[in-house]
């Protein structure tokens, strides 16, 4: 693996084709969304396995996780992994759909260490549980906060506001 940026000269279409071949049956709807971004959907049971294999991919390892964002679509929640490959200088977005009732997904912080704080933030703000996370505390709000404020159905609890 080389950390020189963009030394593997492929474009997003080529990366999408490679990912489609290597992860047939796991990555769904692989598509090129922007000139440098490949988007794909992924079932939540396969996150751990696919993450490890993406990270160790031959020639173009997807070796960096820049952001985990969480979205509330009212019918379901979604976790979006924003990945980047230094070798190919291309981005990959993985969308993982989670049921509202039990939004649990495996942690990827052992694959990409930068996931640690992003997963804590997704738990803090959206209430997504990351199984196997080494330090599953809140990160932005105080530790005894009640609820997850970025959810659409969030109702503020008066106990969150001792200073009135």
């Amino acid at each position: 693996m080389s950390l020189q940026v963009g030394n593997v000269r492929i474009d997003a279409d080529e990366l999408a084709a490679r990912l489609g071949r290597a992860f047939a049956g796991e990555l769904m709807d692989v598509a090129v969304q922007e000139p440098d971004t490949v988007v794909a959907r992924l079932a939540r049971e396969k996150v751990k396995d696919v993450a490890r294999r993406l990270h160790d991919l031959d020639e173009t390892p997807i070796d960096s996780l820049t952001l985990i964002s969480s979205v509330d679509y009212v019918t379901h929640l979604e976790c979006v992994y924003h990945l980047y490959s230094y070798a190919a200088n291309l981005y990959v977005e993985l969308h993982v759909e989670l049921p509202r009732g039990r939004p649990v997904v495996a942690t990827v912080s052992d694959v990409w260490p930068s996931a640690d704080w992003h997963e804590r933030e997704a738990w803090d703000m959206m209430g997504i549980v990351f199984e196997g996370h080494p330090d599953p505390r809140r990160i932005l709000l105080k530790d005894d906060w009640i609820g997850h404020p970025l959810r659409k159905d969030y109702v503020d609890d008066v106990r969150n506001h001792p200073y009135v």
């Binding site: 709000l141 404020p149 503020d156 009135v164």
Partner: peptide
Amino acid sequence: GYNVVNGVDKV
């Protein structure tokens, strides 16, 4: 805001 104290004079 859900996390904002409405004035430091509350504290």
